[in-house]
């Protein structure tokens, strides 16, 4: 039996060398602080009724940000609903994420190589395979990376995507964020396998586990997977071990299925932001007051983004019709007229 060590570069039980420069580590750290600030703000806005149901990524910042830093802007990012952090790093402005949470379809920016966040679980994984194949067929130096959760590994499309990727040696990365939960269902209920990474074996592709709260380890793991993909060594399944500290979404009440104690091993010194902060302080590139300054900057920045989003003009009926097809067919022209006739 193959062993499945957890790749880790920070802390006392590190088992691999760190290859990330302090400068890059500091940038990753800043964006993790920004993501946390944003999530906390969005949770507040939801309570005030200013945005709708929102899925925070609290506790998963290292995986979200660290992974996206390892990508090139030419790579395709194929996200789920909780991946606004990765999308942000890839180039999608936060205002767009806020608009998305306000029920306005704008989780994207036109020039960013990303698909809209998949709401149905796991069904976007085959798209990443196809995108990766398209990149390869056209001789592009880019990969496709799919983001998904532990729950997604139970869906048929997860298995079909890994299998296709293996057969076609697609330059794809499957980034599974094992955050312990699929809403109320623990990962132990998704699979009888001891790890998720080992599912790669069945499809003849590379599998690896990484400490998902170690931003630098995540960065390196994704970077290596990317290099493998580009050097025609095939796809990689990454199991990133992290923890969902917040509710599944603002509509969820985690006290129904987990205890406060369950969070203890993931809070405090295990928090991904704290961990990278401790490391950076040790490296001498982060002062004790720097975090406060970063938080303040992040808050201002997020507030500006919220203001910009809230200042957008009201939605119009035509926006619901104009992008269904490249050319609006007569029946939609007719339906739009009917609707506007009634609206006036």
């Amino acid at each position: 039996m193959q062993a499945w060590p957890i790749y880790r570069v920070m802390g006392d039980d590190a088992n691999a060398p760190n290859l990330v420069s302090d400068d890059l580590a500091l940038r990753i750290y800043k964006d993790m602080v920004l993501l946390r600030t944003f999530d906390e703000k969005a949770l507040n806005l939801q309570r005030q009724g200013r945005v709708g149901t929102f899925p925070p990524s609290l506790g998963q910042e290292a995986t979200e940000i660290g992974s996206a830093y390892a990508l090139s802007k030419k790579d395709w990012l194929v996200p789920s609903y909780r991946d606004h952090g990765a999308l942000y790093v890839h180039g999608v402005p936060f205002e767009n994420v806020i608009l998305f949470a306000m029920g306005r379809a704008a989780s994207l920016a036109g020039d960013v190589r990303a698909l809209p966040s998949s709401i149905p679980i796991a069904t976007h994984l085959p798209h990443a395979v196809g995108l990766a194949m398209a990149m390869q067929m056209q001789g592009e130096e880019s990969v496709a990376i799919a983001y998904f959760g532990d729950g997604a590994t139970s869906e048929g499309d997860f298995h079909e995507a890994l299998n296709f990727a293996g057969v076609f040696k697609a330059p794809a990365i499957f980034l599974c964020q094992n955050n312990g939960w699929a809403i109320s269902v623990p990962v132990s209920r998704q699979t009888a396998s001891p790890t998720l990474a080992q599912k790669a074996v069945a499809y003849g592709i590379h599998g690896v586990r990484v400490d998902g709260n170690d931003a630098l380890a995540v960065y390196q793991t994704v970077k290596q997977a990317r290099e493998r993909a580009l050097s025609k060594e095939g796809p990689t399944l990454i199991e990133s071990l992290t923890y969902r500290l917040g509710p599944h979404t603002t509509a969820d009440d985690p006290t129904r299925y987990r205890q406060a104690e369950d969070l203890v091993p993931w809070r405090g010194e295990h928090d991904p932001i704290v961990r990278l902060g401790v490391y950076l302080e040790k490296q001498g590139v982060l002062g004790p007051k720097d975090l406060d300054g970063m938080k303040k900057d992040a808050q201002e920045w997020v507030n500006q983004a919220v203001e910009a989003a809230e200042a957008m003009p009201k939605v119009k009926p035509i926006e619901m019709f104009e992008h269904v097809y490249a050319v609006m067919p007569p029946r939609l022209v007719q339906q739009l007229q009917d609707l506007e006739g009634g609206v006036q």
């Binding site: 306005r104 939605v315 009926p317 619901m320 939609l332 339906q335």
Partner: peptide
């Protein structure tokens, strides 16, 4: 309408209403 059910900002346009 013959459109994918829209994000909720457009929901009131989509849904049949008294008018």
């Amino acid at each position: 309408f013959d459109v994918p059910y829209p994000a909720y900002a457009w929901e009131d346009f989509y849904m049949p209403n008294p008018e």
